[in-house]
Design a protein around this nucleic acid. Structure first.
Lengths: 208, 208
DNA sequence: GGAAAAACGGACCGGCAGTCCGTATAGTTG
DNA sequence: CAACTATACGGACTGCCGGTCCGTTTTTCC
C-alpha cells in the first residue's frame, strides 16, 4: 500500500544543515551575494546537487531562510499577548509592532540585511511584508481613519528597513536612538501629537 | 608648459556612449544585475577594456550613472528657485523636495530602481543621499526643532525609495495617489496636523 | 609630419550558478 | 533479516560572466 511516503530523514537533516550553514555564512560575509553556493554546500556538509534540489536556486534558499526567521515574530503579532498581539489599543500596538520589527532586525542585523537585499524588490516580495503592512494599515485606520493609511503603513515599514538600520548603526547611532526615532515617527503619524499627552503611547523599554 | 594634456576626444565620446548604453540597458532589463558588462560594451560600441578602464568595475559605472542623473535635481535644490530652492518657507520646502524626489523617481522609474539596487546598501552610499538628508534635516529642525530631525529625515527619504515606489505602482497606485500619500506623511511629520484645518503647518501667513 | 602619450579592444583567466546522472541509502514488505 | 524500490546524494561538468592584460590604434602636441 503505497500512500505517501514520509519525507526521508536524511533529507530533513540536510535541509536544516543547509539553512543553518547559509544563515551563518550570510551573516559572516555580510550578504548572500558574497557567498558562493559551493561554500554553503561544503559548510553544510552536503553536495551541491542536494542543495539545489532542495531549494531550486539561490533565491529559493534565501526565501526559505526568511520564512524560517520571521515565523516566530509573525506568530507573536498574530496571536501573541499584548501589546504586540491583539488586545492592546491600536495606537500602542502600532508602536509595539514597529518597535518589535526594529529590534528584530537589530538582533539579526547581518542576516536580515542580507535577506532584504536578496534581489530587486525583495523586501516587497517577502510574504511577511504583506502581513506587517495589512496589520499596520488596519491599526492606522482605527486610530486616524482610512485616509492615507495604506501609504503611511508603507512609510512606517520603510523607516525600519534593514539597510537604513545598517546605515544608521554604522554612522554611530545606538539602538536606543533608533527606537526613539521610530517612536517619534510613529507618534507623528498616529495623530500628530509630538507631546506625550495627546497620544501617550507608553514608553517601551528603551527610552527608559 | 604642457603639464596637463586635455582629456582625449575619443575618451569623452566613449564615456558618454557607455553611460547612455548602460542607462538604456539597465532600464530595459530592469536592473543592473541583469545586464552583463559585455552587453554594455557591445551596445556602446566599445571594447570591454575601455569600459573597465573608465569605470573600474560595475559599481563604478553605476555610480557614475547616478551622479549624472541626480546632478540636475541637486542643482535645483541647492540653488534653484523656490519652492525647491532656498527662499521658500522650510515647511513648504520639505514637501517640495520630497515631492520632487518622488516625481523624479517616477519619471526615471526603471533606471532609478536599478541604481538604488546596485548593491547592498547602495541608496545610502550614494553621495546625493547625504545631500537630501542634510537638507531635509535642517529644514525639519527649523520647523519642529532638532529633536529626532535626523531620524525623521531618513524616514521621509525611505518613504520615496525606488523599490517602494515600484511596488506601489505595480499594485495599481497612480502617481497622484503617491504624491498625496507623501504629502500626508510630510504633514504628519512636520507638525502633526493631518486634516487641513486642525493644525496646518501652523498658521500659514503667506506674507512673512 | 612625426613621436610619445593615451586610449582602444578583444583574447584570456578564474570562478561561480545551476545541471546531470551514476551511486548510496532510507524505508517497506514478507 | 533480506530483498527491493523510491528517494536522495554528491561532485564532475557546462556555459557564462566579471575583470585583466597587452599588442595595436588614435590623438595630441610641437
Amino acid at each position: 500500500m503505497s500512500g505517501v511516503r514520509k519525507e526521508r530523514a536524511d533529507a530533513v537533516r540536510n535541509r536544516e544543515a543547509v539553512l543553518a550553514a547559509a544563515a551563518r555564512l550570510f551573516a559572516d560575509h555580510g550578504g548572500p551575494e558574497r557567498v558562493s553556493m559551493d561554500d554553503i554546500a561544503q559548510a553544510a556538509g552536503v553536495g551541491k546537487g542536494t542543495l539545489f534540489r532542495r531549494f531550486g536556486d539561490r533565491t529559493g534558499l534565501v526565501r526559505a531562510l526568511v520564512e524560517q526567521r520571521t515565523e516566530r515574530l509573525r506568530a507573536q503579532v498574530v496571536s501573541g499577548p499584548p501589546p504586540l498581539g491583539p488586545g492592546a489599543r491600536p495606537d500602542v500596538r502600532v508602536l509595539a509592532v514597529l518597535d518589535a520589527l526594529l529590534r528584530f532586525k537589530l538582533d539579526n542585523r547581518p542576516l536580515m540585511l542580507a535577506l532584504e537585499n536578496a534581489d530587486v524588490g525583495s523586501p516587497y516580495q517577502n510574504e511577511a511584508y504583506e502581513l506587517w503592512h495589512a496589520q499596520l494599515m488596519a491599526l492606522l485606520a482605527e486610530v486616524r481613519g482610512h485616509r492615507d493609511a495604506d501609504f503611511l503603513a508603507h512609510a512606517l515599514l520603510a523607516a525600519v528597513r534593514s539597510d537604513l538600520i545598517e546605515h544608521l548603526v554604522r554612522a554611530g547611532k545606538s539602538p536606543g536612538e533608533l527606537c526613539e526615532g521610530t517612536a517619534a515617527l510613529v507618534r507623528a503619524v498616529l495623530g500628530g501629537a509630538d507631546s506625550p499627552e495627546a497620544g501617550k503611547v507608553e514608553e517601551k523599554g528603551e527610552a527608559g
